[in-house]
Every structure is written in structure tokens, then in C-alpha cells.
């Protein structure tokens, strides 16, 4: 009973953070039809920034999230205007290729700037836990899951309770129709890309607290983003939540009853099965747009 409760608690807390990883990818893919292959490296860069902010300025990662989100939003919006807009107009695949180039360049630059060393973020709540009903609840999981809930909630409000959110969803449904209705789809696309990357930035700061990290971990986070999107589809943040929770709970469940090696195989097996079931891969997930 305790074991089951432990799996549920840890799985949900991790799942909420994984939702944050996938949400950015889902929003960009859902509205712009672009697979942001740079998602993983952006998450890593955010972890490094959170580390820098803590080590050099003593800023707690929770506050770092508030600093990183606008920085990532502005940088990504500028990047969208300067680099991504033209290829995205031609085809989403060209934009994806460009983002692959961004991934490679960012990885190389990050290796130079931050080196390939492992880093960890040492904050007071990183090494403490408490028990509820026999289940151990790591405080850092709890804190960062709470941060994820707040950010996901705000994103949900933005998407469903604001004009900008409506415009984003309209562009996601039909760019041409949105333009006929007077929506400046180019600027909406810029905002969508900025929002997606900002969420990746928030996820990076949260993950940096939970797990020691180095540049190589970016492929892991990219894979997790894909799993979240493939399981949850592009049905808005609620879909990402389903994907994230499924990933977190699955990871905890498999780790409990299988060896770590097998658990990992099962986890990536889910990715492979989801790709097969969806046929067209991530592209097929577009059927359920935001």
C-alpha cells in the first residue's frame, strides 16, 4: 500500500515537471507545426543559467524562473523574427532543420561557455524530505512541482482567457482564416514561439534543482518532451498534463518493479509504440491542435 502511494506521489510530482518540459514543445508544434528540436538544449541552457544565478548572485532557482522566463521569451521571439520566420513560411520542415542547426550550434557554444562538467544546484530544500502516509516526499520535487502548476495554470489562462490566447488558438486552427479575421499571424507566431521557449526555460531551472546535469542530458530532455507530446497529443496543456503524468507515473512504476535498465527500455518502448500508433510520428499529433 505504501509502495503504491509512493509511486503515485513521486509519479505525480515528477509528472508535473515533465509536463512543463513537454508543454513548450506541444504549443509550438500545435500552433506553428514546427518540431522544436532545440527544446532539449534550451532546457539545459536554462539549467546552467539557474546554476550561474545561484552560484554568482545567490539567486534561488525559484526566483531564477522569473528571470529566465522573460529572457527566454524575448530571445526566442527575436530569434523567430530574424531566423525562423522565413523558413517557417516555406515549410515547417525547413524550420525544423534550422532548429536542428540551432541545436548543434547551441550545444557547441554551451560546451565552450559552461564546459562539459557536471553541475548541481545546492539549495536548502534540495536534500530534505518528509513523510506522508509512509511515502517519502522530497521537498525539491514538491517545490518544483508547485512552480510547474503555477506556470501551467498561468499558461492555461493566457491561452483560454486572453485575446492573445484566442489569437494563438485561431492561428493554430487555420492561419489563413485567422489572417482573414484580421489577426496578425506573424506576430502571433512570434509570441507562440517565445512562449514555448519560455516554458522550456522554466522547465530547465526546475530540472536543474532536481537532477545534477551536464550538456549531454539535453538529448534526454528532448526525448522526454517527445514522449509527453506523443502520449498527450496537442490537446492544449491538458494533453501535455496527461503525457507528463503518464511519463512520471510510468517511470516510478517501472523503476519500482523492474530493474532500472529494463525500466528505461520500457519507457523508450512507449515512445516507439506511440510513434507507431500515431503513424506519422509527431506530425500526426497535429490532428489534436490547441
Amino acid at each position: 500500500m505504501t509502495t503504491a502511494f509512493q509511486i503515485i506521489v513521486s509519479g505525480i510530482l515528477l509528472g508535473l515537471i515533465y509536463t512543463l518540459i513537454g508543454a513548450g514543445l506541444a504549443i509550438v508544434l500545435g500552433v506553428l507545426r514546427i518540431v522544436n528540436l532545440a527544446q532539449g538544449i534550451l532546457i539545459m541552457i536554462s539549467s546552467f543559467l539557474a546554476w550561474d544565478l545561484l552560484v554568482h548572485w545567490g539567486i534561488d532557482p525559484i526566483l531564477s524562473v522569473l528571470i529566465i522566463i522573460p529572457i527566454f521569451f524575448v530571445a526566442a521571439s527575436a530569434g523567430e523574427v530574424v531566423m525562423l520566420r522565413a523558413p517557417a513560411r516555406e515549410s515547417p520542415d525547413r524550420a525544423m532543420l534550422l532548429l536542428f542547426g540551432v541545436l548543434m550550434a547551441a550545444e557547441a557554444l554551451a560546451s565552450i561557455g559552461w564546459t562539459t562538467d557536471t553541475r548541481s544546484i545546492d539549495v536548502g530544500y534540495a536534500y530534505t524530505s518528509f513523510k506522508v502516509g509512509g511515502a517519502v516526499i522530497p521537498e525539491d520535487y514538491l517545490v518544483m512541482a508547485a512552480v510547474a502548476v503555477v506556470l501551467l495554470g498561468l499558461t492555461e489562462l493566457l491561452l483560454y482567457r486572453t485575446l492573445l490566447g484566442k489569437a494563438m488558438r485561431a492561428v493554430g486552427q487555420s492561419r489563413q482564416s485567422a489572417e482573414i479575421l484580421g489577426i496578425n499571424s506573424a506576430w502571433v507566431a512570434t509570441a507562440v514561439f517565445g512562449l514555448g521557449v519560455a516554458l522550456a526555460g522554466a522547465a530547465g531551472a526546475a530540472l536543474g534543482v532536481l537532477f545534477p546535469f551536464n550538456i549531454e542530458l539535453q538529448s534526454q530532455w528532448l526525448a522526454y518532451s517527445f514522449i509527453v507530446v506523443l502520449i498527450g497529443g496537442l490537446g492544449g496543456l491538458r494533453g501535455s498534463l496527461v503525457g507528463g503524468l503518464a511519463l512520471g507515473l510510468g517511470q516510478e512504476l517501472f523503476s519500482q518493479f523492474l530493474s532500472l535498465g529494463v525500466a528505461s527500455v520500457v519507457l523508450y518502448g512507449i515512445l516507439a509504440v506511440a510513434l507507431m500508433v500515431r503513424g506519422g510520428g509527431l506530425g500526426a499529433a497535429k490532428v489534436r491542435r490547441i
Binding site: 509511486i7 513521486s10 515528477l14 538529448s219 516510478e252 523503476s255 532500472l260 535498465g261 528505461s264
Partner: peptide, 17 residues
């Protein structure tokens, strides 16, 4: 006696076991 993939991100269950 457990082998883990180098990309493992959560050891909570394993350490508890």
C-alpha cells in the same frame, strides 16, 4: 546488484529498495 542506464534521472525507488 543493479545496472542502470547512464541517462537515468530518478533513483528514488531504487535507493528505497
Amino acid at each position: 546488484d543493479e545496472q542502470y542506464p547512464t541517462g537515468t534521472t530518478d533513483f528514488t525507488s531504487t535507493i528505497e529498495k
